[in-house]
Structures are given as C-alpha cells and as structure tokens.
Design a protein around this nucleic acid. Sequence first.
DNA 1: ATTGGCACTCGCACGGAATGAGTGCCAGGC
DNA 2: GCCTGGCACTCATTCCGTGCGAGTGCCAAT
Lengths: 343, 343
Amino acid sequence: MQNERRLSVLRAIVEDYVKTEEPVGSKALVERHGLGVSPATVRNDMAALEEEGYITAPHTSAGRVPTDKGYRLFVDRLTTVKPMTAAEKRAIAGFLDGAVDLDDVVSRSTRLLSQLTRQVAVVQYPTLSRSTVRHVELVSLAPTRLLLVLILSTGRVEQRLLEVTEEVSEETLAGLRTQVNAAVDGVIIGEACQALRAIAQPEADAEAPSDDLATSIAEALIEAMSDHRSDERISIGGTSNLARFGDSFDTAVRPLLEALEEHVVLLKLMGEATAGGLVTVRIGAEGPYQELSQTSVVATGYGPGDEALATLGVVGPTRMDYPGSMAAVRAVARYLSRILDEA
Amino acid sequence: MQNERRLSVLRAIVEDYVKTEEPVGSKALVERHGLGVSPATVRNDMAALEEEGYITAPHTSAGRVPTDKGYRLFVDRLTTVKPMTAAEKRAIAGFLDGAVDLDDVVSRSTRLLSQLTRQVAVVQYPTLSRSTVRHVELVSLAPTRLLLVLILSTGRVEQRLLEVTEEVSEETLAGLRTQVNAAVDGVIIGEACQALRAIAQPEADAEAPSDDLATSIAEALIEAMSDHRSDERISIGGTSNLARFGDSFDTAVRPLLEALEEHVVLLKLMGEATAGGLVTVRIGAEGPYQELSQTSVVATGYGPGDEALATLGVVGPTRMDYPGSMAAVRAVARYLSRILDEA
DNA sequence: ATTGGCACTCGCACGGAATGAGTGCCAGGC
DNA sequence: GCCTGGCACTCATTCCGTGCGAGTGCCAAT
C-alpha cells in the first residue's frame, strides 16, 4: 500500500459509508469529494483496494464497503483526532462540574459520552487495586453490630456491616480505630491488605486488645478491599442509540445488547487501561467474541495523574464515526481524570 | 359480558397469543384447548367478543388478537396469580441471600427478576423519605476537609465531601458528632431535617461551638437527605430480553429503550408504590405516554414491614405473560421486603 | 498512468397470480 | 334456543417473472 491517492480513496469511502450507511460507488465518490480524477481511475484504485482486502462489495452491482481491515488502516493512518471545539469543551466541563459524589461523576460521564457520540457509553468505576486508603471508620450501630466504612483516594466509599458476638465498648472501638488507621492510612491497597493481615493474626503478641474482634474487622476490610465486584462495577448509558441500527438488528444490535448485560465480557472488551491520551480501538472480529464481529470498541484509560485506574469508552457497530468517537472518548477521559485529580 | 364460555374463549385467546405470538383462529383454539365445542361456535363467541371490544382482527382473514381492554379483563378476572414452585422459591431465596450490601441486594433483585420473567426488570432503590436515620459520622480527611457519612435504616449510605474554611480540631468534631447524632439518631428523615435546621440556625443561642461549621454541616446533611437524585435511583436489567421482540422494533422496542433512559418517566410509569402483595398492572395506552402504547408494566411496592418504600417491576410489550410476571414480581418483592426487615 | 466508452451483472422494486388460513352466514339437528 | 357442518368470500402472504438502474470490469485511446 504505497499509492497516495488510493489512501485518499479509502478514506473517502469510509467517511461516505459512515455518513450514508450505504455502499458507495465510484461516481458518487468523485462528486462528493474533490479528488480531481475520473470515476474510472477511482474504479481501478477500488479494485486494487479490494484485492488487498481493505474494502469489499456486498454484491456485484453495488458499491464498496470497508472491511474491518479497511477500518483498521483508516483509524491507524488516515485520521487525526480532531480536537473538540471550544463550545464542546465548555459543555463537557460544565456538565461534569455539577457532580456531587463519585457515583454522580460516573453517571454524568456516561450520559455525556453517549450524547456526544450517539453511541452506547460504558464507564468503569475507578478500580480499587491501585488507589490508596484515605481513612477507615468504625461505627457501632448497636452493641453487637458494627459498620465499617472504607474511604479511598478515588472518592469511592465501601461499607460493610459486621455482626460480632461480644459487645464492643466505645473505648475498644476507638483503640481499634486508631490502630487500623495508623496501619493503613495513605497506604496503597495492596500493602494495606498486608498490614491488615498482620493485625488479623497477631503472632503471639500480647498487646492485642481483643483478638477475635480485631481479626474479624481486619478480614472484613480485606474482603472489602479485594472485592471483585467493585472491579467489575460499570455504568452503561445511551442504549437507546442502538435504535438507530434497527436494521441489522439480529446481527448487530442483539449480540451487543447481550454483551452489555455481561459486565465481565464488556470489561474484557474494553481492554487494558491505557492512560495518557492514548485511545484504543478494537474493530469488529478483532477479539475472541465472534458474536460481536459487527461491533467496535473505542476505549481509553483514565485516572488521577495519568495513572489508568479504570477504562471508559463507547461501543457500537463497526460502521462508526471513529474520529468523532475517539475525540469524545479522549476528551471525557481527560476531564474525568482532572476531576479525580482535584478530589 | 355474562356468558361463561365466552370468558374461557377470551382466556384461551390471550394464552395462545402470548405463547405463539401469532393471531389465533377458531380452529386452532378448539384443538389446543379442551373446550368441547366446534369451531363455528367459537366463531360466534369471537364475533361477540370483538363487538364488545375485547379482541380485534388485524385484517379480515387472520385470527384474533386481544386488545388492551381484553388484556385488562384477563388480568382482572380471568387469572389467579399462580404461586411459585418450591424450587423457584428456593432459587429466589438462595440468590438474594448472598448479597453483601444494599447495592448488591438491588442489583441481584434486578437480575433475578429479569431472568424469572424474561422481561426488562426495574428496581427502584429504597426511598429515603420514610426511612429513619441510623447514624451520622463525621470524619476529618484533611484539616479543612470533612466527610459526612449518613447511614439510614434501609442500609443505604450517603456520603458528602465538605470543604470548610477554617481548620477543625478533633475535639470540635467530636462535639458536633455527638450533638448531631443526639438530634437525629433513630429519627424519621423528615423530622431529622427539622432538627438539623434548628442546628443550622442557632437562634441566638450562645452555646453553639462554631456557628459556620455547624451550619454548613447541617446544610450538607439536609441536602443529602432530601436529595432528589436518590429518589430517582433505579436499577435496570435484562434489556437483552427485548431482543426477543426484534419484530415490531420501531413500534415497541425503540420507544421502550428510550423510556428506559428517562428514569423520571420510568418511575412515573411504575406508579405509586402499593405494598402488601398487591401488584399493579398498567396495560398499553392506559397512561399518558402514547409512545408506550405497546408496552405494559407490572409493578408493586416493597419495603420493610409492608411499608412501600420503593417500587419494583417489569416492563415489556403488551403481549406478555401476565400471570407469570405478576407472580414473579410479587415473589421478589416479598423476599426483598423480608431482607430489608432483617437488615 | 489516466480516461471515456461500452457491455455485462445482479440486486431490487413492481405487478400479477396462486395459495390458504380464517371468517361470516345460513340451514339443519339436538 | 343453542350448537354444528357446510360453503362462499376475503385478503394478506408468497412466489414468479420482468424491467430498471446502479455499478463494475475491461479495453482501447490519449
């Protein structure tokens, strides 16, 4: 693939097809785009492109449609992420600024992203694993019932109810509270778990105030920290945008709807978080799920300080406005990261 | 509508139509159901039923289809909610018992309900308004940054970050903590707000420790308590079940998908919470939303002690298995209420 | 290398006929 | 009086056959 014009032709085909949703022919191409050659020339180029597998003809007498390989080349080499307009930037900032807590931030981001791209938006809640512990609070609700509150640097709050066998006095609790906080405050999750394990199994230390109690508290906290469920929590929005693809319902929409229910699949699909403005694009059958051979994923990582705590992105049919989606995904991830920075 | 057999015919039509998704004719009716009469007789009854508006014929030479009015009569008089089997009950209990916190309970209920009914399930988070305050915790994260944690009797936990201008000492905070908790512990939300307002505006009381601080804390708590967002929080699941209705995509599925994004609309649709085993059924155009003339809602209230704190139910096309859906909705609401009772 | 010309290929939309499920009505039987 | 078998009728759906047109592939000319 060296020829310069051929690339332009491919670009034009992708752009036209995404816009019109119909196979595009040689004549329409030269009219709509200003490539100063005749349809016949374009036909030659198209034949070559088809030969190389970048486009395909649904049937003999129809125009051409990009293949997955064609889309891939398009996003890799033929497109530069167009920056958002100032107005869009303002809209994003304004929309996200009103958020009151982490849940709200995530749900607003989801709505925003789905509206910007008119696709289905997926936002993963910030992962626990790399965040740090900000505070642990122990509250006694009833004589034998405790509430553990775990506050993380991302703003996420996990709580656990804990029934204990013996009554717990306020003093004991206060002691434990300071002990636990001394051990884990400001510490990264993984190490905090280590520290808690040490508390849970006081190796013949005589100074442990109330072994059973400390042990069960520590275990509950460890469980809360390593809870898989939290890694899997995601927010989905804009499902109704799928209505635009009422045609190809069985091949494209149905499998996607099913995948959206399978959060685990979805997360795998979004892939590893890659922060720092790098947007990953997964096109069609480029993954292990052949049911999703018609859907693409545009995703990126986000998190405070360019550290990718979680992923966010949009999913939709392969026939998608990639430059627009990539720009929106990148912009939202950037603002979201900034908000987490401040918090 | 007096004739006994006519009612049987209507019931048979509804059951058959729901099962086969096709207009049902007189011949098929007498074959599949054991009504011991000839097709001709059934035809007469059908003509009468059509006259009265309970069924309609899509076109001259097709079978009959129930109208909304027909479904209405069916659910009101022709069906007894069939109890769940023992196995189903066990499955429900087992599935809901593993939940670790309120979020988990709600999301499990959603999944459960959508799997039982093969419809889209909607579960509203327990409303704040009628629940009581169990505990308020004030945590200082940084010298000028506080975290307020509000724990309610339903197990719901709301948190708010609060920036203050002056540094707050641990002692001041402890004093405020006891003061606030003394005022609101165990008190129903509405009254707790009253009590907090009293704290927020200490009417020339000299003993207030730090007016500004107390005021802003109280205000943040009031805001958290009366936050509309929480009343609107709902969990949706089983969207992929809509795929079964790939036909009638534009008339049924698309409007429903759109309604599912509009949580406010959805909540209005679910209607007033009616607890105590009473299941409400809204059929087709029986509401203000003409876009949803093809969708029905089966809902009920739930909450601890038969007090309806929130609603839960399923939405789907009017052609729905009403007895099954009603039974599932009732069963899940019952178990969910029981769990909230225990918590 | 590009271009105009031209024959060719198919998918699709349109129209008419055949099909058949289902109805409405009527006259006769229990 | 209600039920039943028979019969003519309706009309959506299906199946072909045809014409049309968009679009291609190739070739000869520039």
